[in-house]
């Protein structure tokens, strides 16, 4: 455990906390442009967060301690998640603490807490959202795990740092299995981040919402934390996508110079990723909720296929 690793770790956490709302703002901006609307400013998410933090919390009579604790827990889960994914350097002090499976577990932990919080007040919408969230989750979670497994089979490791090192720094090779995994991963991340084909982040139409239904009862600082956590989740998923499929440019060392270059490359990749996300969202239509299992089931099976393709095409015999 050296000083640079600690520094890189803290820097990564700070960048995640700062960049995550901007990434969300950027996606919204791109989407507005693509849909011929005038776009909100890039920092809009910050303004919203700051407004929410300043407001008083209105808490339902029936809300319990769990309801009040959940935003903090979810926020810290997401902060931890975005600092585990190697984005700036593969030499991080947290990287041995949690591998890919633990990362998926971390997302699941946050999901369980947000679903429980949704059920806590005991309103019709809260439990509806919780049910839908868990039902999307139980299909998306194994699919995400299988995407990681494909990468793990390639690099013979579930440690995220080793995966990125293998994919980015060994001799360049084309891994066809990653094509499958990539498609599956995009589908999962759309579902997990409450994006258009599955959920609509901007809707408040009762029958179609998932994420928004769970957090209906939240207000003030609690809502701010949950929104921020959602931004962090989007950020973390984007970083996972970058780390698995476009890892070129993530340095192994963590001296300041390479960190600086890595940060610049990261911002560039995130900008492109955000634009692609906005493009997908603009081009697709929201599905009925009962098409969601089909969508996610397809993602899951594609991820399984990715492993099989790896065994056929890439594994030595």
């Amino acid at each position: 455990m050296n000083f640079y690793a600690l520094f890189a770790q803290l820097l990564e956490l700070a960048i995640a906390l700062i960049l995550a709302p901007i990434l969300t703002g950027w996606v919204n901006q791109c989407r507005a442009w693509l849909q011929n609307r005038s776009a909100p400013p890039l920092l809009q998410t910050y303004y919203t967060l700051s407004k929410l933090f300043h407001k008083d919390v209105l808490l339902a009579h029936n809300a319990s301690t769990l309801f009040r604790a959940a935003p903090y827990i979810i926020f810290s889960c997401m902060a931890l998640a975005s600092s585990i994914v190697p984005t700036l350097s593969t030499d991080l002090i947290f990287s041995p603490a949690a591998d890919a499976i633990a990362l998926v577990g971390l997302f699941a932990l946050a999901r369980v807490f947000i679903a429980l919080a949704g059920m806590d007040v005991g309103t019709a919408f809260g439990s509806l959202g919780a049910r839908r969230e868990m039902f999307i989750g139980f299909l998306a979670e194994p699919a995400l795990l299988m995407v990681f497994f494909t990468a793990s089979l390639i690099s013979q490791s579930t440690s995220l740092s080793t995966i990125v090192e293998t994919l980015a720094h060994n001799e360049i090779a084309i891994y066809p299995s990653l094509a499958f995994a990539g498609v599956a991963f995009s589908m999962v991340s759309l579902a997990e981040n409450a994006r258009v084909p599955i959920d609509n982040p901007t809707t408040h139409l009762e029958l179609t919402m998932v994420h928004e239904a769970m957090i209906l009862e939240y207000s003030g600082r609690h809502l701010a934390l949950i929104e921020w956590a959602a931004c962090l989740k989007l950020f973390a998923y984007s970083c996972i996508g970058i780390a698995l499929f476009f890892p070129f440019g993530i340095p192994e060392a963590s001296d300041p110079a390479s960190l600086l270059i890595a940060a610049a490359i990261l911002v560039f990749k995130l900008a492109i990723g955000g634009f692609v996300l906005a493009l997908i969202e603009t081009l697709s239509a929201k599905m009925r909720i009962f098409r969601a299992p089909e969508f996610l089931g397809t993602a899951f099976l594609l991820a399984v296929l990715a492993m099989l393709v790896h065994l056929l095409l890439e594994a030595g015999r």
Binding site: A69, D99, I101, S157
Partner: peptide
């Protein structure tokens, strides 16, 4: 290199961040 998990750090970070 292949796989590692540290529940103590994991729990510690959540218990610290929260």
């Amino acid at each position: 290199d292949r796989a590692s998990y540290s529940p103590a750090i994991f729990f510690g970070s959540i218990a610290l961040f929260t």
